[in-house]
Design a protein around this nucleic acid. Structure first.
Lengths: 139, 139
DNA sequence: ATACAGGCTGGAGCCACCTCTAGGTCAAGA
DNA sequence: TCTTGACCTAGAGGTGGCTCCAGCCTGTAT
């Protein structure tokens, strides 16, 4: 509320709001920042202010993390994301590798989804034994 | 080879052989044991001997791990395996939670795939302005 | 007889990723 | 003015999942 009173930073968010929006703890946000994943601006009093762009980075991070990319790799991808034409070849190569990995993982997860689905449904109505356990045993 | 000379434990394997068979390091095997994932028998001299059943547990673990279950969850599943009737609902609940997680992850990955795809394919050699940046920022 | 492979233990170390603590600043409201 | 709550910092602590190490034991091969 006091924020919106300053017209020049109308769209800036403080760390607590960002935490609520992203589901990441404020500690985690500060930790990511320390690792260089983004650099929010600061108010005169030293408070962090996050822009739309920072939020977008955070969403990217969340997704990349769900793929088990390390924070280090994520940092480099964000670098490239911020300035694609000047990305180093090594970072470009990383992006390409990661894209391949993501596509591979999509396939596997899709298979996994089907399997789990099947198991969960089998489990309903099974009279004895547990199909899930049995499946894990036999495959 | 020396094992098979003792007829009573013909089918038992020592940790090194199990390591070779499963691709898990002996350290990892002992670590899993410490977590309670299984309890191999011991020879009079204190050596671990793994039975067919232990191997089956390890197989179970490998598979469950590939389904993104944590070692902790796997420990629960193995417990339940020992008492399937009683645990069916719990296993099912665990599988349902995992399924939901997988579905969520599929969504995230699909978005990530799009982002990386743009990053990799649309910004090569563009001299000025890259359409993907704005694209990336809008979500 | 001795060397060597392979086993044992407890505990330390490692990496990635947080999470918590203590002690302080700042801004606004009762 | 005092309190409250959100924020700040540096740094310690914790978790998951291994991995390594020192020091000791055993059992087969030469």
């Amino acid at each position: 509320m006091s924020i919106s009173s300053s017209s020049s930073i109308k769209k800036s968010l403080r760390i607590g709001e960002v935490s609520r929006l992203t589901g990441l703890s404020v500690d985690t946000l500060r930790y990511y920042e320390k690792l260089g994943l983004f650099k929010p601006g600061r108010s005169s009093a030293g408070l962090r202010f996050y822009t739309k762009r920072d939020l977008s980075s955070l969403h990217f991070i969340r997704r990349a993390k769900s793929m088990n990319f390390s924070l280090n790799e994520i940092a480099r991808l964000l670098e490239m994301r911020a300035d694609p034409q000047h990305a180093r070849n090594e970072v470009r190569a990383l992006a390409i590798r990661k894209l391949a990995a993501v596509e591979e993982q999509l396939q596997q997860l899709d298979t996994l989804r089907r399997e789990l689905n099947l198991l969960v449904n089998l489990c309903r109505g099974a009279e004895d034994g547990c199909p899930i356990i049995e499946d894990l045993e036999n495959n």
